[in-house]
Amino acid sequence: MSKTPLFLERKRYRMRRIVDAIRILPVVCAVLWIVIPLMWNTAQEGQAATSLSTALWYIFGIWSLAVAASFALWRRSKAGDEGTDTRADDASR
């Protein structure tokens, strides 16, 4: 109890990595949604603006992927959760 083992057994290791993914996902989405559109062209000085349909495809594409990823992570963590107590992870973070 006082020491968490240096290496975890397979199931808990998997849970930890799923939690890592859950933590990283919003950061990835934020970069894709906030940073990338800043680089698109707006209509000024003769250059053509990035078309709205492209923007729509991009934004909604990321959205669908984010929902799918979040859904998949939920499924995985639910499967892993049965029989595994993650409270220790909570406490150690």
Partner: peptide, 23 residues
């Protein structure tokens, strides 16, 4: 989609500051 591109709002026009600030 074709009509969207042809419309008056068809180009990307979000101002940089507003885009991230509003999110």
């Amino acid at each position: 989609l074709a009509r969207i591109d042809a419309s008056s709002i068809g180009g990307w026009q979000a101002k940089d500051g507003r885009w991230s600030a509003l999110i």
